[in-house]
Amino acid sequence: MHNSSRRGFMGKAFGAVAGVGAVGSLVAMKKTWDPLPSVKAAGFTTLDMSIYPEGKLITEKWRGKPIFILRKTKEMIDSQTESQATRDIVVAGIHYMIAIGLCTHLGCIPAYIPAEKEFHCACHGGQFDWSGQVTKTPPPRGLDIPPFKIEGNKMILGEVGPEFQAMKDSGVTL
């Protein structure tokens, strides 16, 4: 009786020590797999927006991901529907389509078909229009817009400026 209650106590004491150790190890393991500070610090890219030709899709790179930049033609700007216009990004008076060039389905890079002014994703057949809106599933939403901040005719990708915040708040992008 005396012995068994002592063993019971020892068992509980060990359980407590082991429990603390297990939780601590799990935290350490979780954190070890987090992106490194150097990876996070390299997450900013500054673009000079004045260099892009009209109507031609250019791909830049940010955080290892392709960034689509399309300086819109006059025809595109004039024909924009209301929902297409919500995705419009204006830098120094020039209109752009800017988006992360990864399909919102599972992340392939959709190809731009200039003749149809559309993006086609080869992986599972998703499609997007020239403004980045989804036109054919399986992608659940339009192309995501990277966080950006406008400074004069420069754009800093990775920083959240007021224009981006507004788009995020109104649900235009994630």
Binding site: K30, W33, P35, L36, V39, R63, G64, K65, L174
Partner: peptide, 22 residues
């Protein structure tokens, strides 16, 4: 997980924004 948008989990698995060294 689609509509759950657990992008943080994806970045945690990769250790980066995209598949890279980590």
């Amino acid at each position: 997980l689609g509509g759950l948008h657990m992008d943080g989990l994806v970045e945690w698995i990769r250790g980066d924004y995209v598949p890279a060294q980590a």
